[in-house]
């Protein structure tokens, strides 16, 4: 059974159709990369499945429970968010909190975990992303790559069953990108389930188990990473791969 499944998701902004009937299926342990040109609806898809945007239509199945995306209840959204993690393109670390507090807040505030326990957990995940020595820094004192690694730790700390990444390296230079991709690669190796919206072809090819290629609000092609990169079927996909690999 799939861990997460989205069926026939629709979303329009002011009459502009951004998603027109997208389906996605993610099994436990999958790393699904979503590729596609800007404006293809990748980010909107990810934001809709974490309810940062309200989809106009579609079914959402998570851990065996089915929800109607256009009518999902607030309480259900809250429950689902307790089991998911989100990493933003612009990090969005809490500006008024230190690195350690950024990671513990979701535990102490949302999950009522005792402070000591939360700090132990936080230091564990910060160590994993190599940011444990920066525990008392504020986000503004860190580089973009460091901020993004803290953001990954923040998402990891709550032991999510799936992690969403929204173009996590798009704001970073090549060196910092490598830093962040390194952390993500480790997570994939450990069997973390992830959906990654990305422009990093190398990462998608090497790390993902499954690739979804989107254009104009539709899935153009999808398949295993090997099949997708070595034997793309659609003209549109071949064109995209040619441009992005040259």
């Amino acid at each position: 059974m799939a861990l997460l499944e989205v069926k026939n998701i629709h979303k329009a902004f002011d009459g502009n159709q951004v998603l027109s009937g997208v389906d996605i299926k993610v099994n436990k342990g999958d790393v699904v990369s979503i590729l596609g040109p800007s404006g293809s609806g990748k980010t909107t898809l990810l934001r809709c499945i974490n309810f940062l945007e309200k989809a106009d239509d579609g079914q959402f199945i998570f851990e065996g429970k089915e929800y109607d995306l256009s009518r999902i209840k607030k309480a259900d959204i809250a429950d689902i968010r307790m089991k998911t993690g989100f990493v933003f393109q612009s990090y969005n670390l809490f500006a008024n909190k230190t690195v350690l507090q950024n990671v513990t807040l979701g535990l102490t505030s949302a999950r009522k975990m005792p402070k000591k326990e939360a700090e132990t957990k936080a230091l564990e995940v910060l160590l994993k992303v190599g940011m444990d020595s920066f525990r008392d820094y504020y986000p503004s004192q860190l580089s973009g790559g460091q901020q993004q690694r803290v953001a990954i730790a923040r998402a990891l700390a709550t032991d999510p069953s799936i992690l969403y990444f929204d173009e996590p390296t798009s704001a970073l230079d090549p060196q910092l990108t490598a830093e962040v991709l390194g952390v993500m690669r480790e997570l994939a190796k450990e069997g973390m389930t992830m959906i990654v919206v990305t422009h990093e072809m190398g990462f998608a090819k090497e790390v993902s188990s499954h690739v979804v290629f989107m254009a104009d609000g539709n899935v153009v092609e999808e398949g295993s990473a090997k099949e997708f990169f070595e034997n793309p079927k659609q003209l549109r996909t071949r064109e995209f791969l040619r441009i992005s690999q040259s």
Binding site: S90, F94, A95
Partner: peptide
């Protein structure tokens, strides 16, 4: 993004207000 990040770590509206939005 501060509000969105708060939601994404599981906090509710009032928790985000108290810890993130109002202090800033």
């Amino acid at each position: 993004g501060q509000l969105e990040a708060g939601y994404c770590v599981g906090m509710n509206y009032m928790q985000i207000m108290w810890h993130i939005i109002l202090p800033q």
